[in-house]
Simulated assay, not measured.
Amino acid sequence: MKSSIRIDHACAADAPVVAEMVGELLNEIMRATGNQAFHFNLEETTARLRTFLEQEKYHVLVARDATAGTEVGFLTLCESFALYAEGAYGTIPELYVRPELRSQHVGQQLIQAARTFGHTRQWKRLEVTTPQLPQFDRTLGFYEREGFSVAGGRKLKTAL
């Protein structure tokens, strides 16, 4: 039986389940890379996400299986500004679909909902970063099928 997926904008009450899926995402990345790259604390992440949502600094789209009544994925969005992007644009910091629903078009639905949201904000584009590692070739392929193209560069970070 095919599931019925609904995409909703998250509210503060969704913070616990989205934070749980963030933990699943980060653990999956660390297992794939063999690198303990993230510090994850469910309680801290839930509180941080709740604050971000309440302050409207972070936009979260939640994929729900309406038939089962469960959350099956999410996509987060941040608004950014850059001269190279000709103004406002959206960044996708996280996108995650629970493994049992992958290849069921949930990711496509989340990307489409992000595009729709971006149009309402008059964004010029959406950007996403995926690691340049063989373990993430499938992820890169997904984004390319969804119309994203490699823009070059590498994501770098430094602690403040």
Rank of each mutant, 00 (worst) to 15 (best):
L101A: 00
R48D: 11
H39A: 09
Y96R: 01
L53N: 08
E28S: 15
N41A: 09
Q112P: 00
P93I: 03
T116C: 06
T67D: 15
L95Y: 01
L26C: 10
L49W: 07
L83K: 00
E127V: 11
Q109D: 04
N35S: 15
T91Y: 07
T33R: 14
A114M: 04
E28K: 11
G118S: 14
F117D: 02
G34L: 11
R115F: 05
K124A: 06
G87K: 02
V128C: 04
Q104N: 01
F40H: 05
E100L: 01
R121D: 02
P134A: 12
R98G: 02
T46Y: 08
R31D: 15
Y84K: 00
E44K: 12
A113H: 07
L83V: 08
A68I: 11
E56N: 14
L25P: 08
L49V: 10
T46Q: 14
E127G: 02
R125F: 03
T33H: 13
Y96M: 03
Y89L: 05
P131T: 13
E79V: 10
R115C: 11
R102C: 07
L75M: 10
T33K: 13
A88Y: 06
S80Q: 09
Y84G: 01
Q109T: 05
G118E: 03
R31F: 13
T91H: 09
T120W: 05
V62R: 10
E56D: 14
R31K: 14
Q132M: 12
T91M: 05
E86T: 08
Y89A: 02
P93M: 06
F81Y: 11
E71R: 11
E86Y: 03
T45Y: 08
A88L: 10
Q55C: 10
A113M: 06
Q122G: 01
G118L: 06
R115P: 04
R102N: 06
F117C: 05
F52M: 13
T130A: 11
T51G: 11
Q122V: 04
G90L: 10
Q36S: 15
Q104W: 00
E100I: 00
G69I: 11
Q132V: 13
G107H: 01
E28W: 13
T45R: 13
Q104P: 00
T120I: 00
E54R: 12
S80E: 07
L95T: 06
Q55K: 14
V128L: 05
T120A: 08
R64G: 05
E94C: 07
Q36F: 12
V97G: 05
G87W: 03
I92D: 02
